[in-house]
């Protein structure tokens, strides 16, 4: 549905997006992940034809964003970081305007307006001025305008930014419910959001593509191996953690043992093993043979947060200064 090849955007002095390539299949929900200033908004703006790329190519539904920009725009719904609302308009009036702008008219338009009002739960504020709506409602009206013309592709820039936890959940559920009909790209710097809503992740940092994969694969890939958490306790007395660690390291297939915490008499270790070698049985046997108790053994999934930090490097927090502030609501250059 979306193919991006070597997409680059250079500003006067900085390169906001640097040779990014990825593709998104029909019906996917893809999370676009990166710290502030990583180039997420810039990439989205190129996909939505807000501005052209400096070099590289991107196609949406088979149409080039530069050469066939009007065709692309017909097929995308875009929710910028700040919902593009005319605050002096009523909700319904605004939706009709956007609908007409996207090519709807007559009975078709009215049908879609009613549909998106129901879908986004904004029917009760139909007649209110947009300027009087709360942040949560504004966000939903923003989503409603993005889907009004039933676009193939939905591009959402930080759809949950600035909402309270309840609104965040509602918005996430709404986005998930839209997934069947549309291909969705949503950007965020909140990791749990990706884990909860997205099937695939594209991670970028400082304008460069860091990783693109499914959420599960990414978690696995980051360690290149299976890892398990075990809690070992001695039958009597206390366990010398170093001794236990040495013992565990001797087991065939184990590549790394790390002491996580000492819990009362016992200790918790994280044991990593090479890919494809299941060492859980060996681990259990070794522990029992050593005369210890195995209190717990569970696979440890690495949270996306750890993957993210590992992939983007520990200097992720320092990027906002280095990269241009492409995430500001409307950073048009002042003349």
């Amino acid at each position: 549905m979306i193919t991006v090849t070597d997409l680059t955007k250079r500003y006067a002095r900085t390169t906001a997006v640097d040779h990014i390539s990825f593709s998104v299949n029909k019906g996917d929900i893809v999370g676009f992940l990166g710290p502030n200033g990583a180039g997420k908004t810039t990439t989205m703006r190129m996909l939505t034809c807000f501005f052209p790329p400096t070099s590289g190519k991107a196609t949406v539904a088979g149409f080039d964003v530069f050469d066939q920009s009007i065709e692309v725009r017909r097929r995308i719904g875009y929710l910028p970081e700040a919902p593009p609302l005319y605050l002096e308009m009523e909700t319904i009036e605004y939706l009709r305007f956007v609908g007409r702008l996207k090519g709807l008219s007559g009975a078709d338009l009215e049908k879609r307006v009613t549909y998106v009002c129901d879908r986004c739960a904004i029917a009760d504020v139909k007649m209110k001025l947009l300027g009087k709506l709360s942040k949560g409602y504004r966000q939903r009206v923003g989503l409603a305008q993005a889907i009004i013309h039933n676009p193939d592709v939905l591009i959402l820039d930080e759809p949950t930014a600035g909402l309270d936890p309840k609104q965040i959940n509602e918005t996430r559920d709404l986005i998930k419910s839209l997934a069947g009909d549309h291909t969705i790209i949503l950007s965020t710097h909140i990791l749990p959001e990706v884990e909860q809503t997205c099937e695939r992740v594209i991670i970028i940092n400082k304008g460069k593509l860091v990783a693109t994969d499914s959420v599960q694969n990414l978690q696995a890939r980051a360690r290149g191996a299976e890892s398990v958490l075990i809690e070992v306790a001695p039958r009597t007395g206390s366990l010398a953690a170093p001794t236990a660690q040495q013992r565990l390291e001797k087991i065939a297939g184990v590549s790394r043992v790390q002491l996580k915490e000492e819990r009362g008499q016992g200790s918790v270790f994280e044991v990593e093993s090479d890919k494809g070698k299941l060492v859980r049985g060996d681990l259990a046997r070794a522990i029992v043979e050593a005369g210890w108790d195995l209190n717990e053994l569970r696979p440890s999934a690495m949270s996306l947060e750890e993957v993210f930090l590992q992939l983007t490097g520990s200097d992720a927090a320092a990027t906002p200064e280095a990269a241009p502030s492409t995430d500001a609501p409307a950073p048009e250059a002042e003349a």
């Binding site: 703006r45 034809c49 807000f50 725009r73 875009y78 593009p84 996207k102 305008q145 409307a330």
Partner: peptide, 15 residues
């Protein structure tokens, strides 16, 4: 430009 609604216009299928 201030309200960001220019993004709506500029990404709509309108020349």
């Amino acid at each position: 430009k201030r309200n960001g609604t220019i993004e709506l216009l500029a990404t709509s299928p309108v020349r």
